[in-house]
Design a protein around this nucleic acid. Structure first.
Lengths: 208, 208, 208, 208
DNA sequence: AATGAATGAGCCTTCATTCAT
DNA sequence: TATGAATGAAGGCTCATTCAT
């Protein structure tokens, strides 16, 4: 949005206002998320969040209804990434095993990012019951993706017959655990880790 | 400890005093642990702990220096069980694979118990730095057990050559995850779960 | 205010501007008053007032200096009605008793209206000292009306000798109380109530 | 509770402890009540209450669950006085008119005391719904006393036939109003006021 | 060893008010 | 005139911890 002289108008259009607002919400989210992961939800005060953003505490309430709302938004932001990955893989080609491997890679990569870590580093009991319900439903979706592609692989012959539920538990556990031990400054790049995991976690499953 | 008349003396001997004290400490620990797992550390007040024990809050301070001390003691109680299992397996016979499987079973079982769950359901950042250091060392011990027996198995030929570190991450992740999803009132008994896991997690590793 | 073509000009004249402004002020007043009576001054936020008017909070500041100003204006609006009644009665004919009865009726009726209720349902301590002073003076005026007509009635023989001050307290208390118990959807119409009160409150006073 | 030497033991007996506690509760109540009447509920902070008692804010929570609980206790303390008066009169002798006059005197006197003023100077909407319900029931009791003795007086011939409900409204309003205008340092003693009111408010009612 | 009582520190949240646009 | 955004100030409440008894 620029004037004839090429300058950006100081009067924000409604459109730009919306973008600004959205950007600020994102900034709050990222900052809070950062702090939550650094210090743990209960050790983070809204003052800290505000300070790191160079605003004041009540200003946060223009964007979020409260502390748990921020926490919830963080979690959801992480889930969205997972859901996108699932949708992308679902939309793409490949047999059950291929898809499972793709999911392992994508989900594993997610676990090395702040947003992804939210999915498992927050304590369920810090959410409100309503939020918990929604989160529970989301978790089921992710779990269902793992199980369904394992089942699909068994069906299409790319995966040896086994209990999809238990297999999903093993795979999910190993992947979620990445979020606990992987350090960005560690010896292995996220990509290297997930490539390794994709092999390792399907070695026992693949039909050959 | 009874008098000649067969009655228990109302004057406790120093020995009995020590036992009583120890028993009370245990009771506090178990109660706190129960609450911590139920509601999450930060949502549990010392009043709740005291109430469930039918004592008063300050009484707790006769046995523990504070809330984090209790938390720490819970964690350590869990670790002791793991350490015992490791020692027992270490002392027993078997090649690397055998020992690894035994550890998977024992550690997995531990994860279905309250004490075991402490090991992964508590947030590191709720401990003091000193406690964190000790915990960190303990965790290394457990990790070392997994890795060393994998390495031993590779050496003795019971396990195919692979990166013990990554293998341990996968196994550890899958096992720790049990503590998150397993319910006592669920369809699978702890033993059934760990038997399944022992197979599943070593299938890809065993030279067979 | 229309143009030659019969259409209302979109450019408001200064006169119409003034009327608009005044109308908006009134609207704010009525809405705030409504909310104050519904929920109590301290439980009403300016946001609520603004929302009910479909405007935003800062817009209120174009018409009132602040929350207490609105409160004060509400009170004054109520007082004006009382003052008008007093003036009207004062200007009319009748002996002391007649006028007293008229005031009882008018003031009693006022107490069944939102504006009238303001006079006694607001807490004096929510006003600024300056406002309080003005209000105090206004209250004195009303009280003086009651007392003076009682005194006049004693003088002109329509009312039995008594202490006008105490008599005014009794009458005032009974009338103000109407604002607390009378409901529009109750069994007695405002008119019926005040007719009854006018009799009842002067029965003991009248000389016959 | 004194020792052989006549000194008060520094070790409080459970009995004395209970008395102490109760005395403290009373002290908090009276202090809070004082402040509430001085400044209005919403302008009083718990800090003020605590400061005036030379304790700290959280100490209040050992005796009351929160601010509204204190408010409610104040109200109830006032009601108890009214209820006692009613019970006392009920238990005593006298026809309807006599009892009504006694109630007017006692209730009127109550209105000149802090506890009594609570009954009408607090805003209903500052209570929780539960408290409001209980208060509502209590108010009904008081109202019922007025009405029933008026009705009784009509029955026993000491009071002229009239609508007890409206008569009670007039009397109640006049009495409650005392709490608003009477000052301890004013020209009329409480007793003088209520004697005057007892006459004045029943003059029109008495059969002769 | 245990308790009743008190405290200090802190945090979330609310809201009237202001200001740039 | 009206708005979106931000802020300062404040208040209620919680809770781990201490201390006298």
């Amino acid at each position: 949005m620029s004037t004839a002289t090429g300058q950006v108008s100081p009067f924000p259009t409604p459109e730009r206002r919306r973008r600004d607002r959205s950007a600020k919400r994102e900034a709050i989210l990222d900052t809070a998320l950062e702090l939550f992961l650094e210090q743990g939800y209960h050790h983070v005060t809204l003052n800290q969040v505000a300070e790191r953003l160079h605003i004041t505490k009540p200003a946060l309430y223009n964007y979020f209804a409260g502390k748990t709302e921020i926490l919830f938004a963080c979690w959801m932001a992480g889930f969205e990434q997972a859901a996108e990955a699932i949708a992308r893989i679902e939309a793409g080609p490949g047999d059950g095993l291929t898809r499972l491997r793709a999911l392992i890679r994508d989900y594993g990569l997610l676990m090395t990012t702040p947003r992804g870590r939210c999915l498992i580093r927050f304590d369920d009991r810090d959410f409100t019951p309503e939020q918990r319900d929604r989160i529970s439903a989301c978790k089921k979706q992710v779990d269902a993706a793992f199980r369904s592609w394992i089942a699909a692989g068994i069906e299409d012959g790319s995966i040896r017959p086994c209990d999809p539920k238990m297999a999903a538990f093993v795979i999910g556990g190993a992947l979620n655990w990445i979020g606990q031990w992987h350090r960005d400054d560690g010896p292995m790049s996220p990509q290297a880790v997930v490539d390794d995991f994709a092999d390792r976690l399907t070695k026992g499953l693949a039909t050959d």
